[in-house]
C-alpha cells in the first residue's frame, strides 16, 4: 500500500431548475426588497473604457425552441485584454469594469441582452494572443451541469483565424457556432443545445 492522495471529490452538480431566478435574479422575478439590485445586471458605467456593444443571446433546445427559463453568465477581459481578477498577473485591469455579468433569458422572447464592451485580446498559455472572446456559462432546467462555451466576434476574422482554441475544433463546419454576428453595435448569438448546429461546448 502507498499513501493516499487525500483528494476530495468536487461536489456533484445538480440542475438549476425552473426557479433559478429566485436565487440569482430575485428582482427580475418580482421578489423585491431583499437585494437592492440583481447581481451582474449592469456591466458598464460612463467611466468604463472601450467600445460599447450589445449582446443578444438565445439558447435553443433540440426542437429549435428558445429556452425562456435559462440564465447566462458572462466573463470577459477589459478593452485592453486584462481581467479584473487576482489571477491577472500582467497588470491592472480597468477599475471601472468588473468583467462579469448575469442575465436571465426574457420570459417571452428567450433573448438574453447584455450591455458591455468589446474585450481586448488575452494571451494563451504559450503567450500568443487569443482572439477577443467572452466566456459563457449557461444553466437552466434540464441542464444537469452548467454549460461552458465562448462567444467570438464576426468582425475579428483575422484574429479568429489564428485563435488556438478555435483551431482545436476538428470539424471545421462547427467553428461558426462560436461566432456572434455583428448587426450595428450588437452581436447576435444563438446557442444550439442539440442538432446539426449544436454549439461547441467546452470541457476545460
Amino acid at each position: 500500500m502507498a499513501q493516499s492522495l487525500d483528494r476530495l471529490k468536487e461536489s456533484p452538480s445538480q440542475t438549476a431548475g425552473p426557479y433559478v431566478h429566485i436565487g440569482l435574479t430575485p428582482n427580475f422575478c418580482g421578489i423585491g426588497g431583499v437585494y437592492a439590485a440583481d447581481l451582474g445586471a449592469t456591466m458598464v458605467s460612463d467611466k468604463t473604457k472601450g467600445e460599447r456593444i450589445g449582446l443578444k443571446i438565445r439558447v435553443l433546445d433540440g426542437t429549435g425552441t428558445p429556452l425562456k427559463d435559462a440564465l447566462i453568465e458572462i466573463w470577459q477581459a477589459d478593452a485592453d485584454g486584462f481581467y479584473n481578477s487576482p489571477a491577472e498577473m500582467r497588470g491592472a485591469a480597468d477599475p471601472n469594469f468588473f468583467g462579469w455579468g448575469r442575465c436571465p433569458t426574457d420570459m417571452e422572447t428567450g433573448v438574453c441582452a447584455f450591455e458591455t464592451i468589446k474585450p481586448g485580446r488575452v494571451p494563451f498559455r504559450d503567450g500568443s494572443l487569443m482572439a477577443p472572446h467572452i466566456t459563457l456559462w449557461i444553466v437552466a432546467r434540464g441542464i444537469n451541469l452548467g454549460l461552458h462555451t465562448r462567444l467570438y466576434f464576426s468582425d475579428e476574422e483575422k484574429a479568429n483565424a489564428e485563435d488556438p482554441i478555435l483551431a482545436r475544433i476538428e470539424h471545421r463546419v462547427r467553428v461558426p457556432t462560436l461566432i456572434a454576428e455583428r448587426q450595428g453595435d450588437t452581436y447576435v448569438f444563438d446557442i444550439h443545445l442539440q442538432g446539426e448546429k449544436e454549439t461547441v461546448f467546452f470541457d476545460s
Binding site: 433540440g62 494571451p123 487569443m130 444537469n144 461552458h148 442539440q194
Partner: peptide, 21 residues
C-alpha cells in the same frame, strides 16, 4: 431536448477560465 450530444472540446484552462471576479 436540452442535453448536448456531441463531444465536448477539451483543453487545459487558459487565463479566461483560471481568472474570476
Amino acid at each position: 431536448l436540452r442535453s448536448p450530444q456531441k463531444a465536448l472540446l477539451s483543453f487545459d484552462n487558459t487565463l479566461s477560465e483560471i481568472a474570476g471576479p
